[in-house]
Nucleic acid binder design. Structure first.
Lengths: 210, 210
DNA sequence: ATTGCATGTCAACGGGTGTAGACATAAAAG
DNA sequence: CTTTTATGTCTACACCCGTTGACATGCAAT
């Protein structure tokens, strides 16, 4: 079969270089914002001309969309545990562990974070967060409005932690694995976010918030 | 007195236009990232030529520094309450209230957030956060290492909340004042962040974090 | 009225960007 | 070997950017 062999004997395979581009782009978007990543940078990483990037992905926006959203495979936020162990699971995201799943989860958040303030990428990021991150978390929590709110609080901590880590170089650390004290507090924060709401005023302390 | 009158009868006052530029710049940096804010945009807002912006501030970086860090006045993160009411105070930051102090605090965080991923602005942001935000919070908490950690956790929530609010349009809301349910959870998160650490394993639940 | 300084404008430079079309080359098909 | 198709390169466009130096204007002092 001719077409099959074309795939097999790929000396110059478009799919391979395309994948390489996507990978290079991911690494770039992971470290810089949407505008600061140039198509020429990506092309240079792969060892290819700029024009090819534009041709393969149509536009920079679509390339970014494919990096963030994935194309065909449904690569959403992965949660391998039930609601009970969720706090542990989330806390573990900030350890420097080699867990592939966890690393991808965190990396997705960092990409979101880096390009979140960018007129061009904003819409894409917005959609990807709701569909690929917020929804999966809410699903694990059982759905419903309460679940959505709790998911939002969890994401608040995750994003805050990601900012502190990758931008401020404090908090959840930068040198692989946060200090134990911070790790513990982070865990407690997740617990609080996941805990059911005290329903109305549980104590007097809640009231003077205004 | 000639010089005094020159200040008083300012028809073309350099200080005024400079202040206008700074204000326009602040509004811009509040809504877009460092790279997306053009000096020409700022100049157009004030109704002035681009060159003047460059001449008055030397460079874009210095302009940004002055917007974020302030120039002479020590405008750090303002906390008007003691450690006890701190959680309330912080939660109130996300209300759409007219409190000038609170609004400036949140705005500073948003600016930090928007330009945090930007090679040029990174160093400035980094310094400003440590010196003007983290330190004041830690001071209110009484200083010491524990205070620094707690301040870091507080900032984690603040930044996460700011991302959710101004980027994702969820969580701490965007339409002035978060939904009560989220407000309550936010308050609990701050309480947790500020609470003293349970010191080692308080319950068995803390252990399986790894 | 004229000098002189502060204030602001104009034009341009060098560099960077994403994108598109014409062209070249490798490799498979006939 | 020749033809054809996929794969990749080259050139160039039109636009944006920050910055600079020369020039124009307003305004106070002489």
């Amino acid at each position: 079969m001719s077409f099959g062999e074309m795939i097999a004997r790929r000396r110059r395979s478009a799919l391979d270089t395309r994948a390489s581009m996507l990978n290079a782009a991911r690494q770039r978007f992971l470290r810089e914002s949407y505008e600061n990543v140039g198509l020429r940078d990506i092309a240079k990483d792969v060892g290819v001309d700029v024009a090819l990037v534009s041709r393969y992905f149509g536009s920079k926006e679509e390339l970014f969309r494919e990096v963030l959203h994935g194309s065909d495979k449904a690569d959403k936020f992965q949660i391998a545990v039930g609601p009970e162990e969720l706090a542990c699971y989330l806390t573990a995201m900030f350890d420097g562990k080699e867990d592939e799943e966890q690393r991808e989860n965190l990396e997705r958040l960092v990409i979101v974070l880096r390009s979140s303030s960018s007129p061009q990428a904003a819409a894409i990021v917005h959609e990807a967060v709701h569909e690929d991150v917020l929804q999966p978390i809410a699903d694990v929590l059982g759905g419903g409005e309460e679940a959505e709110i709790r998911a939002a609080m969890v994401l608040t901590i995750l994003l805050g932690g990601a900012v502190m880590r990758s931008v401020m170089s404090v908090g959840p650390d930068c040198g692989q694995g946060p200090p134990p004290a911070i790790r513990r507090k982070l865990y407690e924060l997740f617990r609080t976010a996941l805990k059911e709401t005290p329903d109305a005023a549980q104590e007097g302390a809640v009231e003077p918030v205004a």
